[in-house]
Structures are given as structure tokens and as C-alpha cells.
Design a protein around this nucleic acid. Structure first.
Lengths: 213, 213
DNA sequence: ACAAAAAATATTGTTTACAAAATTAATTAT
DNA sequence: ATAATTAATTTTGTAAACAATATTTTTTGT
């Protein structure tokens, strides 16, 4: 499995989806389905799946097949801590390198998020969420930071699965928090932005924990 | 990969060899070689290798292929702690369930170890070492303990690779420690047996660490 | 209508084959 | 003799095919 191989492609893709909570725990990961979706051979998917098995992100069924594991509370917490450290750092760096363009881009992402939630495109909203946080990292303009962030394969705290009312309100809260962060950065209130970001993560963690149980 | 599958067989075998330090770090794991040795298809080996990749026991070469990783100091230490807890517990349990047969079996294993070291069959000596420690667990006659021990896939602290004089003396020290443990158990000096066991692990850990560096 | 049995379908586990790439061995030139 | 180049071999990455097992659907009987 060279880093550029098909197996790596499959591994990365499935892993991303698990870590961004786009897959419900205990669901079966059908090899052929993923193979055609990702556009690789079934064997490549199988190799990726086995790697994920080693990482304990999936399990084997008693009668064969691979099933996605739910993240442990400890995992969720660890992830929260890491994201908080990196993104708070990014916001502070960004504060000194702030430009009108960056703010506009962030606002645009917020708008995308809003409209997609309104239209019930929760998958799309999820992507916009990822984009928002990646943009913060990007705008800090620090290569090493960006690298660390990517290397972490850091998951989001959203469940785009059951579209209960609760989930919808979660998206709305997320939307508001994102906007508050941008607003604070825009008006040069770095500490306030950090405050909102931390609040954002804290809520994200608790949402994850209560849904899992 | 059902738990009884070929891939599982390959995974277990390769893993065992890595964790018992029968494989030098950085050596390439040739798929076909392992396939024929273990008696499974190359694909099964590949799947096992990918699982080990997820467990970070192997890495990918830049130009493809799988290579064995060396255990980190932290790993070595964790392993030592775990083995110490389980085996010290086992010795204490064994002390109250002691029989002449058990002692004889342990002594026989020690003899095997001695003769194999003498004849420079270091691989065989390694196996005898494993056997010695497994016997201690077995003789404690506690299912759950045995299960925990097996589940841990606990590695030994020996390098059977470069047969420098240093390594040879390591085997001799090991031999002596094993015998001291048996002798203490035989004469009902449980605390002394535990003392020797702890000493044995302590030395094992430091040997591992200085060789790796 | 419900439960059990049978058939049909889908999914996985395994093997084989093949092409691409890397390694090793052999050849050539300096 | 050594270094560079070429050829041979090995090893990997990928795909396709097949058999065995699971799952779903349909049928049948009560």
C-alpha cells in the first residue's frame, strides 16, 4: 500500500467518513458498495478496512463483514482537546494576519451553511462545517500548524444521520457559533472569538456523548 | 476477515513474531515468503499486514512494501508493567496450588532453554522462554487471568537477531533468573520468587531499550 | 395472517492471474 | 577494477473470477 495507492485512497475516504461521523455506528460497510463509490477495486477497500480494523475504527462481524465502531468517550474528549489547541492557536495567529478577504470567505461559508441547513441538505452543511474550520487553520498561514491539523484526521462533532428536531437545532446552534466567531474576529476581539470557539467545541463534545449513549 | 479466516491466521502469526522480537526492526516483510511459510494466500498476508499497519506495528516503505517497526520506549514500558502485574499475580496464585508436577515441568523448560542456548539455537531458546512464562500463567489455574494474558499479546524482551557476545550473556542471565524463580517457588519462598521475577522484567526492559537506541 | 421452509440474491472469503514497479544480477565501457 | 548501464528476476499493486456463506425474498402450509 504505497501512500498513493488505491488502498490508501479507500482507507482515507472511509476513515474520513467515520471520523466526521457521517456513518452510524454498527452499520455494515459493504465492500462492493464502497469500491464503486470511491472508484477503486474491492480489494483496495478490503485493505483499507483491515487497516481501520487495526485502528479499531471498525470491527469484524461474527459472520464476517466489517462494521463501524462508535468512538469512545475518551476518543471524543481527546479529539476535542486537540482541536481546541490547534484552532485556538490558529485564531490567535489569524488575528494578526487578518484581511478583509479572509473575513469575507468565512462569512460566505457561514452563508452556505445556513442555506443548506434551511434546505435540509445536512450532508452539505456538514461539508461547509469542515470547510469553516479548515479555513480558520488555513488563514493562520502557518504550514506546520496546517500539517499537524491534517495529520490528526480530526473529526467533527455532528451527526448527520437521524434528522430529528434535536439535530436540526444543533445545526442552528452551530451556525450561530460560527457567525459569532467571525464577528468577533472581524471586530478585532480575539479573546471573544476564542471564547466562542471553545464554547463551540464544548457543546460539540457533549452532543457527541449524549447521542452515542 | 472472520476470526477463523486465513487473514486472521496470517495476522496472528506475524503479530506474534513482531511482539516476541523475532523480527528485526526495519526488515521487509515479503508477502509471498510469509504466505508460503504460514500456508495461506498472499492476499491473506496482505490483509494481516494492513491490520498491523493500523496497529502501527509495521510501516509502508516509500516505494511500497511493509516493514516492521521497532517498539517505542513507551510501548516497552507499558508492556513490562502489564506483564509484571499478571505474572506476579500468577506466581502468588500458583504458590497455593503448587504441585510436584508443575515444578518438574518448569525445570524441564529451563533445561530445554539451557541446552538450546548452549547449542546456539536462539530461536528455540526464545520459544522456551515464551513457554516458561506461559506455564507460570497456566499453573495459576485461573481462566480469566490466562485470558487476559493471551489477549494482551504480550511480547518478550529478547533479541534473537545479532548474536553478539552481549546477546549470549543476556540469554545466560535469563536462564539463571528463570531457575531462581523456580527454585524459590519450589522451596515455598513466594516473595523471593516474585522478587526474581520483577528483577527479570526490569532487566528485560533495559535490554530492550539499549538495543533499540 | 403468521410461521416455517425453500429459493433467490447478495456478500464475503479465497485464489489466480497479470501488469507495473523495484530490486538484484549481469554486462559493458572507462 | 570500478562505475554506469542494461537485462533478468523478484516483488508488489491491482483486478477478475470463483466458491462458500449470509441474507433477503418468496413460497408454502397451517
Amino acid at each position: 500500500m504505497k501512500s498513493t495507492s488505491q488502498a490508501a485512497k479507500a482507507y482515507l475516504e472511509i476513515r474520513k467518513q467515520i471520523l466526521s461521523n457521517q456513518l452510524v455506528a454498527k452499520t455494515r460497510l459493504k465492500e462492493d458498495t464502497w469500491a464503486t463509490n470511491i472508484g477503486v477495486s474491492r480489494m483496495a477497500v478490503r485493505e483499507g478496512l483491515n487497516r481501520l480494523l487495526g485502528e479499531q475504527l471498525v470491527s469484524l462481524g461474527a459472520k464476517g463483514g466489517y462494521f463501524v465502531n462508535s468512538l469512545s468517550s475518551a476518543d471524543v474528549h481527546t479529539i476535542r482537546e486537540l482541536r481546541e489547541i490547534l484552532e485556538v492557536g490558529a485564531v490567535r495567529l489569524m488575528a494578526v494576519k487578518i484581511t478583509k478577504e479572509k473575513i469575507e470567505k468565512l462569512e460566505k461559508i457561514c452563508d452556505d451553511f445556513t442555506s443548506m441547513v434551511k434546505k435540509r441538505y445536512f450532508g452539505g452543511a456538514c461539508e461547509a462545517d469542515v470547510k469553516f474550520h479548515e479555513a480558520i487553520i488555513e488563514f493562520a498561514e502557518n504550514n506546520k500548524l496546517a500539517q499537524a491539523y491534517k495529520a490528526g484526521h480530526i473529526p467533527l462533532f455532528h451527526q448527520q444521520l437521524s434528522k430529528t428536531q434535536k439535530q436540526v437545532s444543533d445545526y442552528e446552534l452551530t451556525d450561530n457559533e460560527h457567525r459569532q466567531i467571525v464577528k468577533a474576529i472581524k471586530s478585532r476581539k480575539t479573546d471573544l472569538a476564542v471564547e466562542w470557539l471553545v464554547k463551540h467545541f464544548g457543546r460539540g463534545e457533549s452532543v457527541m456523548l449524549e447521542i452515542d449513549s
